[in-house]
Amino acid sequence: MAEPEPMEEATVREPLDLIRLSLDERIYVKLRGEREIRGRLHAYDQHLNMILGDVEETMTTVEIDDETYEEIIKTQKRTIPFLFVRGDGVILISPPLRS
């Protein structure tokens, strides 16, 4: 587990390296259907199927007020201890900010 990684391992040569470098980190995932999740990345594969832990899911819905026609943006949040994300729903993944 704690063996030091060679320097090359820290470089991003292909997009999936960005995901590999985020293992065991909290990541942000934007999914189809106005869903966003944040959680700890435990595992992933080449389809971007992922196993996330300590997940917070945010769902956003936009309603139009019948009288004022104002957009009412509602967000709902829920926490899920452990889940599987099917890769085909993934739009964007952002790792935590690295300094």
Binding site: P15, L16, L18, I19, Y28, L48, D88, I91, L92, S94
Partner: peptide, 11 residues
């Protein structure tokens, strides 16, 4: 804004 971002190609 995102520091780094991975975008899945099918989108």
């Amino acid at each position: 804004k995102y520091g780094d971002a991975f975008i899945r190609g099918n989108n």
